[in-house]
């Protein structure tokens, strides 16, 4: 019995060995590349990743297999990537959460986004919209801030403690000195529903779904979180115009483990850039309000450090420690 099993295993072994090929160095990539997405299937990060991976693999001539490894705000998947061999066959989709915010939120984060990562290419970014319900008494950002300084203060919804939507609200509180009470929700959609019904006063939300409801008169947009405004809602003024220093965006960045060889990084980086400029990706970016990346490869390390600093500062002042 055992004997037969061994034989089967050996045959299977030889069969799969021919797929894998020898370890001899040939032109990269010579086998499929794994792209780890540290969030579950169907999230916006997952959608972006799958689209980019599909176009990239057409360019590189090797399939890119997307693996979802969700958990702990993306820390589970990211810590897996940083442990992988830096040979270019394991890469990941990093986000403002996994590469910047998590460092100040999780005290025992199993990786350091500044030291354990080789950035490959910036993908894109999107600011968020500050929205209030249509029946809200706040017509402008100034009204909102004035309201927060009166009586019991005002409330804001978020997608959970320590998320970018929470920290954006905290930053507004710090910059304006108002009384803004944090009310976390399980998802942005449910939070948005609470803002529409007037249960919560305001929320920072993804521009696309918010914008549709603004057009339908169910919500009002009072500001954009990014200093450069939003491509989806160019008519809404950046909050930065009224309160200097308010510049928060959600971004995506493809990276690998630390110490990847330069030629591999460059090749991958070029493939990502080509993918972002491909027609179907441009189209998706346009409908979903993502602006394509504008940080060059040699500026990425500095960009990550700056973001870690920035969010760390907000988290510090908000005391949003999530041990």
């Amino acid at each position: 019995m055992k004997h037969v099993f061994k034989k089967v295993l050996a045959v299977a072994a030889i069969a799969s060995a021919s797929f894998v090929g020898n370890a001899a160095v040939a032109e990269y990539p010579e086998r499929p590349i794994t792209m780890i997405v540290p969030f579950s299937a169907g999230t916006s990060t997952d959608t972006v990743s799958r689209l980019i991976a599909k176009v990239m693999s057409d360019n590189l001539g090797q399939p890119i297999v997307v693996e979802n490894r969700a958990g702990a705000g993306g820390s589970v998947g990211t810590s897996e990537v940083v442990k992988a061999d830096p040979d270019g066959y394991t890469i990941a989709m990093g986000t403002v959460g996994t590469l910047a915010i998590n460092k100040s939120i999780f005290t025992d984060l199993p990786y350091d986004p500044e030291a354990d990562v080789t950035p490959i290419s910036f993908v894109g970014y999107t600011p968020t919209l500050l929205v209030v319900g249509a029946d809200s008494k706040f017509q402008t950002l100034e009204d909102l801030v004035a309201g927060s300084k009166a009586g019991d203060g005002i409330t804001f919804a978020s997608t959970g403690n320590g998320t970018s939507t929470h920290l954006a609200g905290e930053l507004l509180k710090v910059l304006t000195g108002g009384q803004m009470i944090h009310v976390p929700y399980k998802s942005g959609a449910v939070g948005l529903a609470a803002v529409m019904s007037g249960e919560v006063d305001f929320m920072f939300n993804h521009p696309v779904s918010a914008k549709k409801n603004v057009e339908a008169g169910k919500l009002r947009a009072l500001g954009v979180s990014g200093a450069k405004g939003s491509v989806v809602a160019p008519e809404v003024p950046p909050i930065n115009d009224s309160y200097d220093g308010f510049d928060l965006i959600a971004w995506w960045l493809i990276h690998g483990p630390a110490n990847m060889p330069d030629d591999v990084t460059n090749k991958l980086s070029a493939a990502v850039t080509a993918a972002i400029n491909a027609g179907e990706v441009r189209e998706y970016f346009a409908t979903s309000g993502i602006t394509e990346g504008d940080v060059p490869l040699d500026g990425l390390k500095g960009f990550i450090s700056a973001e870690v600093q920035k969010w760390g500062g907000i988290a510090e002042s908000a005391k949003a420690k999530a041990d």
């Binding site: 999230t43 998802s187 449910v190 696309v208 779904s209 549709k212 169910k218 189209e283 979903s288």
Partner: peptide, 24 residues
Amino acid sequence: GIPGDVVMAILLGAMIMHGIIPGP
């Protein structure tokens, strides 16, 4: 355009990928 659960969120994502954004 408010998905009640995860599966609905994926379907919403599918609509956006096809260039349709559900809303009121």
